[in-house]
């Protein structure tokens, strides 16, 4: 049986045009891959090779200059390049979650409410959402005395775990991870890896940037190496990307 694809990226390029500086910055050049549900693709490459930009293109945060990005949503594939803002909002509500390195939230909201919010937005009752958020925070080793405090007062590692909890709580079919474990210690990294593996087992497709080797090798099925941009324009990959289905 053909695997069901979660993401199809075809010839994606992104060049940032900085009008006021009169420059163009090529960030992603001609990247293609497809990823089925239940699998994880790691995006590799040196710093500045466009890894984050590529992941942002998959979230609709960044508009590719060329190519197309399709994500399998509730009503079939949605092309993020052509989709309107409300279609992308819908996709983010029901299909795609993005976990970045940083937790950016309105100050003074408690950790529990931050983690519960994606569920409430999806229409779950407040009490049930908070109950599930508590379970999730427990799994990520956040002590209960911190639940009612805003994460601004937390350590870097605790904040990152709140961020992971917020990203995983919805059990989205598509997970985008941008160095989600960068500030975690070894035991917490292992917990995060287990959660990512559980998500895969449930059928989620994951695209991740993992600087940590162990995390990457523990979660990823395939990898896609983006070329360095340090020396002149990037060379086209001579062979197709490492993804074979």
């Amino acid at each position: 049986m053909e695997p069901i694809l979660a993401i199809k990226a075809a010839n994606v390029s992104k060049t940032f045009v900085l009008h006021n500086l009169g420059t163009r910055l090529p960030a992603v050049e001609d990247v293609s891959f497809s990823l089925p549900f239940g699998k994880c693709l790691a995006i590799d490459g040196p710093s500045g090779s466009g890894k984050s930009t590529l992941v942002r293109c998959l979230y609709g945060n960044c508009l590719p200059t060329a190519g197309s990005v399709s994500v399998f949503g509730e009503n079939g594939f949605v092309d993020l390049v052509a989709a309107g803002p409300r279609e992308i909002m819908e996709l983010r509500k029901n299909t795609i979650s993005h976990v970045s390195q940083f937790l950016r939230v309105i100050p003074r909201i408690s950790a529990l409410d931050i983690v519960a919010h994606p569920l409430i937005e999806k229409g779950l009752g407040k009490n049930e959402a908070r109950r599930r958020a508590g379970t999730m925070l427990h799994e990520l080793n956040i002590p209960e005395r911190l639940f009612d405090l805003p994460p601004l007062t937390f350590s870097g590692g605790e904040r990152q775990r709140v961020n992971i909890a917020r990203g995983l709580i919805k059990e989205s079919p598509v997970l985008l991870l941008d160095e989600p474990t960068a500030s975690l210690d070894a035991p917490n990294k292992r917990i995060a890896v287990d959660l990512f593996l559980a998500a895969k087992k449930r059928g989620s497709a994951i695209v991740g940037i993992f600087h940590d080797r162990d995390v990457r090798d523990g979660v990823a099925d395939w990898s896609l190496e983006l070329p360095s941009k340090a020396f002149g324009p990037a060379k086209r990959n001579s062979s197709p990307p490492a993804v074979t289905l």
């Binding site: 009008h19 609709g60 960044c62």
Partner: peptide
């Protein structure tokens, strides 16, 4: 105009 994060993270207009 558009999604807030897209307009602010990837603005098109000078």
């Amino acid at each position: 105009s558009g999604l807030t994060d897209r307009v602010l993270d990837d603005p098109g207009e000078p």
